[in-house]
């Protein structure tokens, strides 16, 4: 299986503060990996580093075969990041925003309408200015842009935030479909029940690092799924704790 992300002792700074202080992470093709950790642990920073938005200044960082320490911009078109911010323009319509995101990333305009339909952005919504939308609807527009772009690596930061139950289910379905199509997904979420059920593997982040595993991976209690033995890597069941804080 192809290695999609390889971080070794990765260090990244915001100003002079080390937001990543020695991250080791391996993610392979078609995996769904959950980053878990407390607020400020470095989950978002790992996702931003993998997207080439946060410069890795020391250690090794290779995403989709691109060395991020040399040229972080080279990977961006192949990666989609759904962050806390929606990256939408308030004065543009829903359709305009998604079309711009797709075309800017080199995609085809024809992928916009199916993505809007998939996210339930139908009827008058495509022609509605984003400024008029609720937080949940804005989130869905952001997701539609991601779906329309369909990048090789999906980086999702608290993807369930702001969505109602119906659209959380929809999001989970989109993630599973993406993996079936050969995409790889790394997500950070505090929605433990949903995220554990979605992820094939869990990586714990603490203090801007992925602390070494103090003990061999053991059974992981998954809400609603019971205890699962380590080693099995199947999307939909969290199967391995790579490291424990």
């Amino acid at each position: 299986m192809d290695q999609v992300i390889r971080l070794r002792s990765a260090v990244a700074l915001v100003g002079r503060f080390p937001v990543l202080a020695g991250v080791d992470l391996d993610v392979f093709g078609t995996e769904i990996v959950l980053l878990q950790g407390a607020n400020g642990a470095g989950k978002t920073s790992i996702l931003r580093a993998c997207a080439g938005l946060l410069r890795v200044v020391a250690g090794e960082a290779c995403v989709l075969g691109v060395e991020l320490t040399e040229d972080p911009r080279a990977v961006r078109r192949r990666v989609g990041l759904l962050g806390h911010a929606t990256a939408l323009y308030d004065d543009l319509t829903v359709a305009d925003n998604v079309t711009f995101a797709v075309r800017a990333a080199g995609g085809e305009r024809s992928s916009v309408r199916p993505a809007l339909d998939r996210l339930g952005l139908t009827g008058r919504l495509p022609a509605t200015r984003v400024a008029s939308l609720s937080a949940g609807q804005r989130r869905r527009v952001s997701l539609a842009a991601l779906v329309a772009r369909d990048p090789e690596l999906w980086l999702l930061d608290e993807p369930h935030a702001g969505l109602d139950a119906e659209h959380r289910d929809l999001l989970d379905g989109l993630v599973r479909d993406a993996v079936v199509r050969g995409r790889t997904v790394v997500l950070a979420s505090h929605e433990h029940h949903r995220a554990h059920a979605l992820a094939g593997r869990i990586v714990t982040v603490a203090g801007g690092a992925t602390p070494p595993d103090p003990a061999p991976p053991g059974p992981l209690p998954v809400p609603g799924a019971g205890a699962v033995a380590a080693g099995a890597v199947a999307p939909g069941v969290a199967s391995e704790v790579t490291s424990v804080a």
């Binding site: 997207a51 080439g52 938005l53 911009r73 961006r76 078109r77 990666v79 989609g80 990041l81 962050g83 806390h84 911010a85 929606t86 990256a87 939408l88 323009y89 308030d90 004065d91 995101a101 800017a104 990333a105 080199g106």
Partner: peptide, 17 residues
């Protein structure tokens, strides 16, 4: 200021333009 609102600048950077 358009690009500063709601992470639009990151979206622009991420697009690879």
């Amino acid at each position: 200021s358009l690009e500063a609102a709601d992470g639009a600048r990151d979206g622009l950077r991420l697009s690879g333009l």
